[in-house]
Each structure stands twice: as structure tokens, then as C-alpha cells.
């Protein structure tokens, strides 16, 4: 019972390479194409059973921003004229690379 609950848990955990953990809604995490594939029960990755994904090349600061974006995206999913999310210029390049990796 506990196991089957785990498989479709509402929240998933994202872990940065410096061991910061972020609990986010599964639906939000799945906005990222990479995470959607990883957490898709049909994919058979180990992330699907653990509901946890470790990013070896993303640090906590960037991952926090990514999480912020995922919720921002979910919040405004059906809205028109969405205000842009604030991104600190110094994070831009790194965040861009990460966004490319995560496909979001």
C-alpha cells in the first residue's frame, strides 16, 4: 500500500548538487520535459520509484530559481498577458543552460 502511494505521490523531491532539497508539486515538476520523462511511470527510471531526482550539474541557487519558475509557469498556465518573471542578470547564463537541459 505504501509503495503504490509513493508511485503517484503528489510531491516530488529535487536535489541540487550541493544537497539542497526542494519539494515541488509533481504537476509543476512535469512542466520540464526532462523531469516529465524521468518521473513518467512508463519510463522505468529509478526516479519513478523514489520520487526524487538528483541533479549533478545544478547548484542550489539555480535549482531554487528553476522551482520558482515551475510554479510561476503553473500559476499562469491559462492566463493572458503574463508578467515576466524576474531573473537576476548574474544568474541568466547559468539558468539558460539549465533551462536548455531541463527543456522548459
Amino acid at each position: 500500500m505504501a509503495d503504490s502511494n509513493k508511485e503517484i505521490s503528489e510531491y516530488v523531491t529535487l536535489v541540487s548538487n550541493d544537497d539542497f532539497e526542494f519539494e515541488v508539486l509533481r504537476s509543476a515538476a512535469c512542466i520540464s520535459g526532462t523531469m516529465r520523462k524521468a518521473f513518467d511511470p512508463a519510463s522505468g527510471f529509478k526516479e519513478t520509484t523514489q520520487n526524487r531526482m538528483k541533479f549533478e550539474n545544478i547548484n542550489g541557487v539555480i535549482l531554487e530559481k528553476v522551482c520558482e519558475y515551475l510554479y510561476y509557469n503553473q500559476k499562469w498556465a491559462d492566463a493572458k498577458n503574463v508578467p515576466d518573471m524576474e531573473i537576476p542578470p548574474e544568474l541568466c547564463l547559468e539558468l539558460l543552460m539549465t533551462a536548455d537541459f531541463l527543456n522548459c
Binding site: V66, N73, W76, I87, C92, D100, L102, C104
Partner: peptide, 21 residues
């Protein structure tokens, strides 16, 4: 025109705005 931009679009915009730096 619906929903938010992708994170990549947001970052690229920001980069372009700060091109000089």
C-alpha cells in the same frame, strides 16, 4: 500568447537586455 514564456525565453530576453555587461 497564452500562458507564460518558457524559462529559456525569459533568460534569453534578460541576456539581450543586459547585452553590454
Amino acid at each position: 500568447f497564452r500562458g507564460s514564456k518558457t524559462l529559456q525565453q525569459l533568460c534569453i530576453q534578460k541576456l539581450a537586455a543586459h547585452a553590454e555587461d
